[in-house]
């Protein structure tokens, strides 16, 4: 099972995890990204490249299934405006055993950061600013190649 979703709606964590557990897996690993409250950030806005985003996420999911022999992958990315504490992204993997599930989950979130066309903008009291990529993101993604 591969599920990829790019949607402005809030991410329903329980529903996503339950769907991964239904495939007969021995282990399910998940990562949830949440809007931080650093530096007076009141809200976050996610822009993306419709069409390319979904294709990029599907390609990552298929690569993970092939590499770790996964039973299920879910990548759910929220777009639009969200406030502190809300979920931005959910990545879940289901496998026969924990190691495959944990490693593939880390792979997917590391690679998503560099391989999928999303852009974050922070909303602060005084205005907005586009988020710059973190220096460590490229290194974290490169570990998996």
């Amino acid at each position: 099972m591969i599920r990829v979703s790019v949607d402005p709606a809030p991410i329903a964590l329980g529903v996503e995890v339950a769907a991964l557990e239904e495939g007969g897996a021995g282990g399910v690993a998940t990562f949830t990204g949440v809007v931080r409250t650093d530096d007076g950030v009141e809200a976050l806005e996610l822009e993306h490249y419709p069409g390319m985003t979904e294709a990029a996420l599907c390609a990552l999911a298929e690569a993970a299934v092939a590499r770790w022999n996964l039973l299920g992958v879910s990548i759910v990315h929220r777009v639009g405006r969200m406030t502190a504490g809300e979920r931005i992204v959910f990545v879940g993997t289901a496998a026969a055993h924990r190691r495959e599930a944990l490693d593939s989950c880390a792979y997917l979130i590391d690679r998503l950061k560099t391989d999928a066309p999303f852009w974050k903008r922070e909303w602060l009291a005084g205005g907005t600013r586009w988020v710059e990529p973190r220096a460590g993101d490229e290194e974290a993604a490169a570990v998996w190649s």
């Binding site: 990204g33 996610l46 993306h48 490249y49 069409g51 390319m52 294709a55 990315h77 931005i88 992204v89 979130i109 998503l112 950061k113 560099t114 391989d115 999928a116 066309p117 999303f118 852009w119 974050k120 586009w130 988020v131 710059e132 990529p133």
Partner: peptide
């Protein structure tokens, strides 16, 4: 809809997107 370096050839391109480094996740 495929990432390319800036020195990539355009031949046959229909859609070209220009943007800052991505910051999803």
């Amino acid at each position: 809809q495929r990432f390319v370096p800036l020195d990539a050839a355009l031949n046959g391109a229909r859609e070209v997107a220009i943007f800052p480094p991505v910051t999803g996740g």
